[in-house]
């Protein structure tokens, strides 16, 4: 007997893994440096979503979803705290992804400046033509 929910969640996971493969193809085989940058951003984003998926947890009942890792009361009782920790998703991957997204943009911007500089010097962003240049 196949669990429909597990099937649908596995579709998500495997489509993300396929995205990793497609973006790696883009980085390695497409000739344009701009296309390589676009594929690199997709690779980074996909890795981030996979990290969040690892931190997700199953529903405890068909109508009780997990909650975000944010406590909504300032004066919690012991019951509130145990309910919170039994329902909330893992906050650690979220904290790591949070910084990774911003740093990823900064590094991408640096790559963009490098590509502009290559175009200024050689007049092309095609790696096949750049490889043939001498000097």
């Amino acid at each position: 007997m196949i669990d429909v929910n597990a099937f649908l969640f596995s579709v998500l996971v495997f489509s993300l893994i396929m995205n990793l493969g497609i973006s790696l193809y883009g980085i390695f085989w497409r000739p344009s440096l701009v296309k390589k940058i676009i594929a690199l951003t997709i690779l980074g984003d996909t890795a981030n979503v996979l990290a969040i998926v690892v931190g997700y947890r199953a529903w405890i009942a068909p109508n009780r979803p997990p909650i975000p890792p944010v406590l909504t009361t300032w004066k919690p009782t012991a019951t509130d705290l145990s309910k919170f920790s039994s329902l909330a998703v893992d906050p650690l991957p979220q904290a790591l992804v949070l910084t990774a997204v911003v740093i990823g943009l900064a590094v991408t911007v640096f790559l963009v400046f490098l590509t502009i500089q290559v175009y200024r010097l050689h007049g092309t962003t095609d790696v096949r033509k750049i490889a043939k240049l001498k000097g």
Binding site: D3, A6, F9, S10, V13, V53, G55, Y56, R57, A58, P69, L81, F84, S85, A88, V89, D90, P91, L92
Partner: peptide, 17 residues
């Protein structure tokens, strides 16, 4: 096993507690 996992790891419990 099936996805998603039923519970978070012990480290996450510590952070949440």
């Amino acid at each position: 096993y099936a996805l998603p996992f039923p519970a978070v790891r012990n480290l996450a419990y510590w952070y949440l507690r």
